[in-house]
Each structure stands twice: as structure tokens, then as C-alpha cells.
């Protein structure tokens, strides 16, 4: 095996992982407070669009990133209001939000730019790439970490911070208590509804950041439905990582690896077939985690 090749696979795995990891963290924290959020796809997609729109008009990276985060958080907030506050069915809200954002982004793309399908422009700015001075020159490691963006590193920092918050702080303990027993937490004065709503909004912001990586990381463009199921893959990653921030890193890396292998194999196998790899891997991973939990329960009932 060629070391150079392995390093490049690792490099692309890291890049592919970031959006999934960020969205998976969003999914994980939602399920920690007892909300089943299916609108991750919408939260990501809106961010890919608005970051590029702001990018197009301002040529400013920071504003673009902020636009992505805020638009994701906005969708998260709408989901929070409908699903948490008014207790509408999660599936209905999730699927309609996903479709709504998919329609709305295409609508705006045509309205603002008169374009169909995608928006590419050579003057769009992408996220700055970081090449750490010393590490850059170490052969294997340098190639592995080549051209990563700050968000690629930030994602892991966020995961660790989330872990510390949830399991080490008082406020995190109360957040977890909402998911464990909402009624009990409320009986002792915790504002459960407000916590759930903030968490869902936060998941929107996280997915938004993930969306920004998609549209301004490896490529700098917007394509219709460019998230292509990543929100759902992220849900699978979160459930595989039993909604624990650190385990979710591991499961997200697995899905990143699958995508990276998928695109690496395109030279050998036709791309339409390799593109199915991440989706099939998701199903297999869900089977594995289901089989694991079934075994531990020793097959009671059914």
C-alpha cells in the first residue's frame, strides 16, 4: 500500500467527516433532550445556500459563515416552535421542512440569480485553508492534514466542549435531565421547554456550520439539494454513537471514510455505483447497532 495514497484517503476522510460530524452533534444533542429532529437536512441545506448568497454579494468569508449559521439556527428555531412548543408530529414537521427548504432554495436561486441547478462563480471566496508551519513539512502527517479549514478542527473542539458541558457542568446536568424525565425536571423549576427549544435551535446552528463546510470547504458553490441525505446519515451517526458526543466523533469518521472511499473508487468502478456506498454503509451500520442492542436485551418481547 502506498503511504501517500493512504494519507490522501485520511485527508479526504477528515474533510468529508466535518459536515456529518457537526450535523450528528446537532442530532445527538436533540435526542439528549428528548426531541427527534428530522429537519437536519433542511438546517444544513439552507446554510449552504445563504452562505453562498452572502459570499456572492459581500465576498466576505466571516459574513458568509455567520449567514450559514444563522440561517440554520432560524430553521432550527422554527422546528422548535412547531415541534416542541406546539407538539406537532416530528415526522410531519421534519419532512415538510426538508421539502420546504429544498423548494425555497431553488426558488430563491432562480429569483435572485435567474439560475437553475447550481451557482458557481470564480469570484466566490472559500474558507481559508490552514497548513500548520511545522507539521506541513512532516511527510505523512503533513499530507494528512493538508489544506484543512479551521472548521474541520473546530468540529472536534465543539464535540469535546459539548461532552464537557453535558457531563461536567450543572447546566449540562439540567439539560440532560430534561431528556431523562421532563416532568421531574419541571417539577423542580427547570424550564424544560425553553431548554428543548434552545437545544433544537443550537442543532440548527451546528447543522448550519456543517452546511457552510459543504458549500465553502472543498468546493465553493451551491447546488440544489447538495446535502443529498447527509442530514439523515448524520442521524444514523448520532444513533450509532448512542448520542454521546465523543462516540459520535468515531461514528462520523466511519461515514466520512465511506464517502472518501466511495470517491476514491471512482477510478475503478463507475461513479454512479460508488456513490451508493455511503448510503449502503449507513444501513449496514444501523443494522450493526440494532443487532448489538438486540443482543444485549436478549430478545425479550416479539
Amino acid at each position: 500500500m502506498n503511504w501517500e495514497y493512504i494519507a490522501s484517503i485520511v485527508n479526504s476522510t477528515l474533510r468529508m467527516t466535518t459536515p456529518i460530524l457537526l450535523a450528528a452533534l446537532g442530532s445527538a444533542i436533540c435526542s439528549k433532550v428528548g426531541v427527534f429532529n428530522i429537519a437536519l437536512e433542511a438546517q444544513m441545506l439552507i446554510a449552504t445556500f445563504f452562505s453562498i448568497v452572502v459570499n456572492y454579494f459581500t465576498r466576505n468569508v466571516y459574513l458568509s459563515v455567520l449567514a450559514g449559521i444563522f440561517s440554520g439556527a432560524l430553521i432550527g428555531y422554527i422546528v422548535a416552535v412547531l415541534q416542541v412548543k406546539y407538539r406537532a408530529a416530528d415526522m410531519v414537521i421534519g419532512t415538510s421542512m426538508n421539502l420546504l427548504v429544498s423548494g425555497a432554495t431553488s426558488f430563491l436561486l432562480y429569483l435572485i440569480f435567474g439560475l437553475r441547478g447550481k451557482l458557481v462563480d470564480s469570484s466566490l471566496v472559500s474558507l481559508p485553508k490552514i497548513n500548520l508551519p511545522l507539521i506541513r513539512d512532516i511527510p505523512f502527517l503533513g499530507r494528512m492534514l493538508e489544506n484543512l479549514t479551521i472548521i474541520d478542527y473546530l468540529a472536534y473542539v465543539i464535540a469535546i466542549l459539548m461532552f464537557i458541558y453535558l457531563y461536567k457542568t450543572v447546566s449540562g446536568f439540567r439539560t440532560l435531565s430534561v431528556g431523562i424525565n421532563k416532568e421531574a425536571s419541571e417539577s423542580l423549576g427547570t424550564k424544560a421547554l425553553r431548554i428543548q427549544m434552545s437545544v433544537v435551535t443550537l442543532s440548527g446552528a451546528l447543522c448550519g456550520l456543517g452546511g457552510v463546510v459543504l458549500s465553502m470547504g472543498q468546493v465553493t458553490m451551491f447546488t440544489e439539494n447538495m446535502t443529498s441525505g447527509r442530514g439523515f446519515i448524520a442521524m444514523a451517526a448520532a444513533s450509532l454513537g448512542v448520542s454521546h458526543p465523543l462516540l459520535t466523533i468515531v461514528s462520523s469518521l466511519f461515514f466520512g471514510l465511506c464517502q472518501s472511499i466511495g470517491s476514491a473508487l471512482q477510478n475503478v468502478i463507475k461513479s454512479q455505483l460508488t456513490m451508493t456506498l455511503p448510503y449502503i454503509a449507513t444501513i449496514l451500520a444501523l443494522m450493526l447497532s440494532g443487532w448489538r442492542s438486540l443482543k444485549s436485551k436478549n430478545g425479550r418481547s416479539i
Partner: peptide, 30 residues
Amino acid sequence: VQQHFMLLQPCTVAENIVYGHEPKKSGIFF
């Protein structure tokens, strides 16, 4: 003392008892 216990089942006895007025380390940590 409610008839249906308002307890966090997967947490420890101590965590349940101090809930709401948790002792803190450096301001934010439990």
C-alpha cells in the same frame, strides 16, 4: 412528595437529591 415519583431514574441518589441547587466548582461545574 409526589405519588408518582419525580426522579431521574438513570442518575444517582445524590444527583437526584441536590437537583435544583447543585453544589458547584468554579462557578459552572457540577
